[in-house]
């Protein structure tokens, strides 16, 4: 199925969880936050939250800024 990950289209398997997605993409969970369709998903739900076709996922982090 197709998802939009950080504003780019991506193909993932049906029913993939956030945890599996992060694992596939080799992303550490310590300094990130995730929003799906503009709703924040708490870290404690990553293992059970399944993505759906067309979900818009934003993964953000802290970078240098003033």
């Amino acid at each position: 199925m197709n998802i939009i990950l950080n504003n780019e289209s991506d193909e993932v398997h049906d029913g993939i969880t956030i945890e599996e997605l992060l694992d596939d993409k080799k992303i550490h969970t310590q300094y990130i936050a995730i929003e799906i369709n503009k709703k924040i998903i708490p870290k404690s739900s990553y293992y059970k939250h399944e993505l759906k076709e067309g979900d818009k996922i934003e993964i953000i982090t802290a970078i240098g800024g003033g």
């Binding site: 992303i27 934003e58 993964i59 953000i60 802290a62 240098g64 800024g65």
Partner: peptide
């Protein structure tokens, strides 16, 4: 201070 931006996947 830090800025909040999309992660560079």
């Amino acid at each position: 201070t830090v800025a909040i931006r999309r992660l560079n996947i």
